[in-house]
């Protein structure tokens, strides 16, 4: 079983400070670490390898020299091989180009890995794009937002029982077989704390760096397809919508309705009659309220 894990160095969430007034993010205060979801992806890969008792874990990142930190963490945790992809122009790449570069690197090996793990999203832009795009470039099925993972041997073949996180608290249970790409949520597991010998070996390791532009299957012309970021804003709580007070009411009652948050009784009227009469009444009502 060959497993590849894609890692990213990202600001640790606890180090992100957003000015409450300007909404600006102070990048100087960032502490760059292995992205939390990616650490879980790596941990999941390592646990799977250990459970199967065979296989290898290949940790890959695309980033500048500082991001070798994350590969050292990966090595200390138990990755068998590590590699960094970098080209100065990559600093401007969007998620689709990054995914293409990762895909080109994985295709450069004689065969694709059996499983690919990615973090669901990074703590900085959180677009959640790289994993799915990578699966698309490699033509692999994918499961995103993994929050539960169990491996079983099913008549000599590996069967994965996967729990996926959906929106609004829904969960989806899936059965899957490799080859497959999984993007992992940061609650999947608790990444291990490496032993001292592993930590030391990782600190001393030399790391292979490859230029993605030199990869045969990579063309760095994906910029056109990238998402354009128009604006970044801090989320604000949605304002509570107040019903417009009934204009028939006295000013006193209207103010009362506004300051009670529109909790005064609704003014409903039941109209009875023939369809023509009802339509007339409806038009009259809409006109009266200024809708038509």
């Amino acid at each position: 079983m060959r497993i590849a894990v894609c890692l990213k160095q990202a600001p640790d969430c606890s180090s992100v400070y957003v000015d409450p007034i300007s909404g600006e993010v102070d990048t100087e205060r960032f502490v760059q670490t292995l992205n939390a979801a990616d650490a879980c992806a790596l941990e999941a890969a390592l646990r799977l390898k250990e459970q199967l008792g065979a296989g290898s874990v290949f940790a890959l990142t695309l980033g500048p020299g500082e991001s070798e930190e994350v590969l050292r963490v990966a090595l200390a945790m138990g990755a068998d091989t590590i590699e960094r992809l970098w080209h100065p122009s990559a600093a401007d790449w969007g998620p689709l180009t990054i995914a293409a570069a990762l895909a080109a690197r994985l295709r450069a090996d004689p065969s694709l890995p059996d499983l690919i793990f990615c973090g669901e999203q990074s703590s900085d832009w959180a677009s959640g794009t790289v994993g799915p795009a990578l699966a698309a470039y490699l033509g692999l099925p994918q499961i995103t937002g993994v929050i539960g993972l169990e491996a079983h041997q099913d008549s000599g073949q590996l069967l994965l029982r996967v729990t996926r996180r959906l929106e609004r608290g829904y969960r989806e249970r899936l059965l899957a077989r490799p080859p497959l790409l999984l993007t992992v949520h940061e609650t999947l597991n608790e990444p291990r704390y490496p032993s001292l010998p592993a930590h030391l070996a990782a600190l001393r390791a030399t790391i292979t760096v490859r230029d993605p532009l030199s990869l045969p299957q990579f063309a760095a012309d994906f910029e056109a397809e990238e998402t354009t970021i128009v604006e970044v804003r801090t989320p604000r709580p949605r304002p509570h919508r107040l019903p417009i007070p009934d204009s028939q009411l006295s000013p006193f009652e209207r103010i009362g309705e506004i300051i009670t948050g529109g909790t005064s009784r609704r003014q409903a009227r039941l109209v009875e009659g023939s369809p023509e009469e009802l339509a007339h009444e409806l038009v009259r009502f809409l006109k009266e309220r200024g809708f038509v």
Binding site: S14, Y17, R29, E190
Partner: peptide, 10 residues
């Protein structure tokens, strides 16, 4: 304390 970075261990 909101200005300080804590990586909280369990």
């Amino acid at each position: 304390l909101e200005l300080v970075r804590f990586k909280v261990d369990k």
